[in-house]
Simulated scan of single mutants.
Amino acid sequence: MNIIKYPIITDKATRLLANNQYSFVVNPKSDKPTIKAAIEYLFNVKVVKINTAHLPKKKKRVGQYMGWKSHYKKAIVTLSEGDTINLFAEEN
């Protein structure tokens, strides 16, 4: 499944975990029904709502060199009560 690329772990994304909302970087051409189906299939949870955003590319500087941070699409997925996704693997 090339729809879900990886989860987003930022300060805002960890605050959203309290509301049972998870953030993922997804394929820019995917739509909400396919994102919902992929999340429900991969993690065996019930998705209530999906918010998506196309984030623009940004200029980044490393020393004297200018470059671009690439464009991506973000999906914020709200799960039903009682469902969770374990993003942080526990080590033994």
Rank of each mutant, 00 (worst) to 15 (best):
E40Y: 04
I35K: 02
T84M: 03
F88H: 06
I9N: 13
F43R: 07
T78Q: 15
N2L: 03
A53I: 12
V62G: 04
V48L: 15
G67A: 11
N51C: 00
A18C: 04
Y72A: 02
A89E: 14
E40A: 10
L55E: 14
K74A: 03
V26N: 02
V48M: 14
M66P: 07
K12L: 02
K49C: 02
N19V: 00
K58D: 06
P56Y: 01
S23V: 14
P7K: 03
T34H: 07
F43W: 09
K29W: 05
S23F: 00
N44S: 14
Y72D: 02
K73A: 07
N19L: 10
Q64L: 12
K5E: 10
L42S: 13
H54A: 06
E81S: 13
I3A: 07
N44T: 15
K74Q: 09
V48D: 15
N20V: 00
K73F: 01
V26I: 06
K60T: 11
Y65R: 13
K69H: 12
N44D: 15
K49D: 14
R15S: 09
D31W: 01
F24M: 02
I76H: 03
A18H: 10
I39T: 15
G82V: 02
N51V: 01
T14V: 09
D83F: 13
N19K: 10
V25W: 04
A38Q: 14
P56S: 12
N19S: 11
E40Q: 14
D11P: 10
K69F: 08
N44C: 12
K57I: 01
S70D: 05
A75S: 10
Y41W: 04
K29T: 06
K74N: 07
N86Y: 04
P28C: 02
S70E: 13
M1Y: 09
E90K: 12
V48F: 03
E90I: 07
S30V: 05
I39K: 11
F24T: 01
M66L: 11
I4A: 05
Y41M: 02
F43C: 04
I4L: 15
A53T: 12
V47S: 12
F88V: 10
D83Q: 04
G82L: 01
A37E: 08
Q64S: 13
Y6W: 03
N92Q: 07
M66V: 14
L55W: 01
Q64W: 12
K57Q: 14
F24E: 01
E81L: 08
I9P: 13
K74E: 11
